[in-house]
Design a protein around this nucleic acid. Structure first.
Lengths: 192, 192
DNA sequence: GTGGAAAACGGACTGTGGGTCCGGTTATTG
DNA sequence: CAATAACCGGACCCACAGTCCGTTTTCCAC
């Protein structure tokens, strides 16, 4: 996206960008994600529809950036935070810590995840945030169990975070059930 | 759906139903699933758009029935076919056989799966075909490893059949990679 | 056969949402 | 305080899901 504007020089552009991002979050808190149209986002943000598209390129672009923002703290914790989420702990422990963190993120941003998935559809697997998560998991799995097809199992674990599925599971057992079962799925795999 | 028509008495109704189903399959073979609109389906089938909706209620309904049709043979094999897919084999073996069969089905119907997923979205988990698969897996997993949260792990395994993911994996290793890894994921879980 | 009611048909119509375009506006810079 | 480049708004376009109703077809009773 970023139509050639190197640094987004103008102040109004920066302001509107934030306004759109905030408006989107606000709408996601309200009704179901499917009803968050870009018309509505523009209205809520108090800008024109054109502005939304100029800033984010498309519906997909908007939700991609929003997700990236929400995932920033996690990325930081993974790269430079304390173990076991950050570097230093054994790979298998880091996998479990990462999945736990992802549960937290999913629980706190279910609507966003849902909207993001709907918008990205097939492009989900080229989304920068997904890619980052997948790379991280792949690396860890490979270190913990070098004989496994690490990229596959990274995809398989991330597939458990399909938004409608998470929603379903959260209504039947809540976060603890999710956490416990992800661990139950991962542990025998990495220690076999 | 089925607007009160108990048995679909009239011949033209039956004929058009088939024509629509066949036309949809034909279109799915062609371009990408996203471009298969119901207008196009109606045109290809040589019927009016209203007829499509009267028969199937919605886009979701159409793809749901098409998937059910494609899954019928598998359902039959599960219930009354020879082991290990059918009854008689140890539960763990039946799980692996079922996953193998699902890979075959997915490979042969990727476009349909993709279109079905897009159309169902959040309702995916109430789709009769999904429900049948999930129930089957849940039962087997519970028998093979009674201490596990069988419904969760059934969902987790089925999540690996997300259409875009399957597409991605098929272009990087083909069916054998999928089969081998599903086995690598399942075996330690059920024997732990 | 035939007549008529029930069932089904077709395609024009509506509403909505993603994405584009361009005339007007505003921030920046010298 | 220009001048200019970036930016803004919202009217506009298109495609698609889903609805509606006047017309046609099927089928069954006679």
């Amino acid at each position: 996206m970023w139509k050639g504007c190197g640094v987004m020089a103008r102040a109004d552009a920066v302001r509107n960008r934030r306004a759109i991002l905030d408006a989107t979050e606000r709408l996601l808190l309200g009704a179901d994600p499917a009803s968050v149209s870009l018309d509505r986002v523009a209205a809520e943000a108090g800008v024109g529809k054109g502005t939304v598209f100029r800033r984010f390129g498309s519906r997909t672009g908007l939700f991609t950036e929003l997700l990236a923002e929400r995932a920033a703290a996690l990325a930081e914790a993974i790269d430079h935070g304390p173990p076991p989420l950050g570097p230093g702990a054994p790979p298998a422990d880091r996998v479990l810590a990462f999945l736990d963190a992802l549960v937290d993120l999913a629980v706190g941003n279910l609507s966003l995840l849902s909207a993001h998935e709907r918008a990205c559809a097939a492009d989900k697997y080229t989304d920068p945030t997904y890619l980052r998560w997948h790379t991280h998991l792949t690396t860890l799995i490979h270190k913990a169990a070098p004989t496994l097809d690490a990229p596959f199992h990274a995809h398989a674990l991330l597939a458990c975070f399909d938004a409608p599925l998470v929603h379903l599971l959260l209504t039947q057992g809540g976060p603890p059930r999710l956490r416990a079962n992800l661990q139950a799925l991962t542990t025998p795999l990495l220690t076999a």
